[in-house]
Design a binder for these strands. Sequence first.
DNA 1: GCCAACGTTGGC
DNA 2: GCCAACGTTGGC
Length: 158
Amino acid sequence: MKHWLFKSEPEQFSIDDLRQSPGQTAHWDGIRNYQARNLIRDEIKQGDMVLFYHSNASPPAVAGTAKVARAAYPDHTAWDPKSDYYDKKSKPDDPTWFMVDVTFVEKFDEPLTLPEMKEIKALADMMVIRKGMRLSIQPVTRKEFDAVVREARKKNRG
DNA sequence: GCCAACGTTGGC
DNA sequence: GCCAACGTTGGC
């Protein structure tokens, strides 16, 4: 089982939106970056664990966790001319873009913020800490995943 | 709103 | 294939 960090702007799709989705499960659509696509398509498997990160938030933060419910399948929003994510080069018989399904696992009522993460030694090598790191799907180590969850729970105990 | 860091596009 | 111009991401 691998561990990941998925970024989402909470105004677009938040941890609460995931929790309120039917079956607390939603498809992670709109990936339009090849590096992220390759991870989605080739590396992410059912059962993998996800840190749900709110980007473009004040402050940016890990808001909870989720689990991959379904491995990669074609992102149909690429075929919909009315979708913001429409991409005419993706064809149903040769899809360019893929998505996975994720299921809500846990919400941190007090999210673990980026400034806090930067202070945690165990997270010093996390990609999301680095300046200019725009990749929206990032691998994290099991140690990093566990440290984020541990620190977030500690913070929420007060 | 600013802007640094990246990714993509397209002329050559 | 190079690289300048442009567009996007996302922290601040």
